[in-house]
Simulated assay, not measured.
Amino acid sequence: MVETDTREKIVAAANRLFYREGIRAVSVDAVAAEAGITKKSLYYHFKSKDDLVAAYLDYRDQPSLGAFKKCFDTSKGPLADRIAGLFENLALVAADPKWKGCGFLRTSVELANLPGHPAIVAGITHKKRLEAWLQSIFADAGLENANALARQIRLLIDGCFAVVMLHRDPGYMREAGEAARCLVDAALAKRPG
Score class of each variant (00 low, 15 high):
D73L: 11
D73T: 06
M165R: 14
C182G: 14
G22H: 06
P118Y: 06
M1R: 06
A35H: 01
D96H: 06
L130F: 10
L92H: 12
A80M: 05
E175G: 11
N89Y: 01
L111C: 04
N147G: 12
Y172L: 12
V28M: 03
D51M: 11
A84R: 15
A119Y: 11
K127S: 15
V28D: 01
S108D: 06
P118H: 08
R106I: 15
A119I: 10
L42D: 01
A132K: 05
M173S: 01
F87Q: 03
K40N: 12
L111H: 00
A32T: 05
I23D: 02
K190N: 04
V164D: 00
G177D: 04
R129N: 14
S27A: 06
A12K: 05
G177R: 11
N147S: 15
G101C: 12
Q135R: 14
G159A: 07
T107A: 12
F72E: 08
R191V: 04
A30C: 07
G177P: 01
R129H: 08
I37Q: 01
L149D: 00
E34L: 05
L65T: 01
G123E: 03
K70Q: 15
A80Y: 03
V121I: 15
V11P: 02
G171P: 03
S48W: 08
L65G: 01
L65V: 03
D29T: 15
A176G: 14
A176C: 13
G103C: 04
H126R: 06
N147I: 11
M165C: 14
A35N: 00
D51Y: 00
G101T: 10
A162N: 03
I10N: 00
S64Q: 11
W133F: 04
L149V: 02
L52C: 06
L92V: 15
T125D: 15
P192F: 13
P78I: 13
Y44N: 11
R174C: 11
R24C: 07
A12C: 07
C182S: 15
L166H: 13
R106F: 10
E21T: 04
E8A: 03
D61E: 09
I153S: 09
I153R: 13
F72C: 08
D58R: 09
D5Y: 13
V184Y: 00
R154L: 14
L156H: 05
V164R: 00
A176F: 13
A176Y: 11
A112I: 15
V109E: 08
A122S: 05
P78H: 08
Q135N: 10
Q62I: 13
A80K: 08
G177L: 12
D58G: 14
A122R: 04
G22D: 05
A146R: 04
L149K: 03
D61W: 11
A54G: 06
V184N: 02
A176R: 08
E3C: 09
S75D: 06
V31S: 04
G103H: 01
F68V: 10
C102M: 12
W133E: 05
I124V: 14
L156Q: 13
G171K: 07
R151M: 09
T74E: 15
R168T: 09
S41I: 14
K100H: 08
A14P: 09
E144C: 10
K40E: 11
R16K: 14
K98I: 08
L92D: 04
A35M: 03
